[in-house]
């Protein structure tokens, strides 16, 4: 589904990713772990197509298409979703309106019919219930005045409604207490259907306890330096990242 080959990415002329390789198949859940500054968030933003994240060499293929050539909204329509580490507040734009507009824009781009208000509300309500989210959040502006946990759960709600084919979760666990963490993990697990793929970017192993990843990768200084199964996450938790930093220093 996703094939990243020898990816080099620069931000403001500074190289952050330095030859990253990663392949994710249908239905798989991959975790990328690594210390601060290793390039985790850069990977997420690059996949979603943020401006200023310049691919200097290498390639990203998503379902056989060159992702680097696509606009952010085209990527979304193709089924890619990034849950932001810091979801953006958009004053004045109604949360529910935004989500419905996004859903219909994607459906339109795929040649599907638009979803009407009643149907949409049903979809959202279902997602909210599982996340223990108050419906009043729908009436507020996108992420405005939301607590850290509410923002993260709002991202998962969007994911549940938009039904992406590949979801990238950028440190979705950061800033969540244990109860919220469980709810978010359940939200993710509900969407695992054997076809949908996930890339979970995280600093800590604790979210992975609830997700049972198929593969775990260690990112350090812009490269994947080690890959393995879930046991790798546990080892990192015990050893920390210090040995990696020494090695790259």
């Amino acid at each position: 589904m996703l094939k990243i080959k020898n990816l080099h990415v620069s931000v403001e002329d500074q190289e952050i990713l330095k030859g990253l390789d990663l392949e994710i198949g249908p239905g798989e859940l991959h975790a990328v772990m690594g210390p601060n500054g290793s390039g985790k968030s850069t990977l997420g933003y690059t996949l979603a197509g943020r401006e200023d994240y310049e691919i200097t060499s290498g390639s990203i293929e998503f379902d056989g298409e060159d992702l680097g050539e696509m606009e952010p909204d085209e990527r979304a329509a193709a089924g890619l979703f990034l849950a932001f580490q810091y979801p953006v507040e958009i004053p004045g734009v109604n949360n529910a309106y935004f989500l419905r507009a996004a859903l219909n824009a994607q459906r339109k781009a795929r040649g599907e019919s638009e979803v009407d208000g009643v149907e949409f509300l049903k979809m959202v309500r279902e997602s909210l219930k599982g996340l223990d989210m108050d419906e009043s959040l729908l009436k507020r502006a996108v992420n405005e005045g939301f607590s850290g946990g509410e923002k993260k759960r709002n991202e998962i709600t969007q994911m549940a409604v938009l039904q992406p084919r590949l979801a990238i979760l950028d440190e979705t666990d950061s800033g969540l207490d244990i109860d919220a963490l469980k709810l978010v993990a359940e939200g993710i697990n509900r969407l695992r259907d054997g076809q949908r793929s996930f890339l979970v970017i995280t600093h800590y192993q604790r979210l992975l306890d609830y997700l049972s990843p198929d593969h775990v990768h260690v990112l350090s200084d812009g490269q994947i330096v080690e890959s393995g199964g879930p046991e790798l996450a546990h080892r990192l938790e015990e050893q920390g990242y210090a040995h990696l930093e020494r090695a790259s220093a």
Partner: peptide, 30 residues
Amino acid sequence: LDDRSLFYMRSRGLSEAESLALLKYGFAAE
């Protein structure tokens, strides 16, 4: 208009024009 908001909206599937229109509306509606 804020670049980050624009990117956020586009990453959810809205086109650049739609995102800009919605951002403008959000700003003006308050």
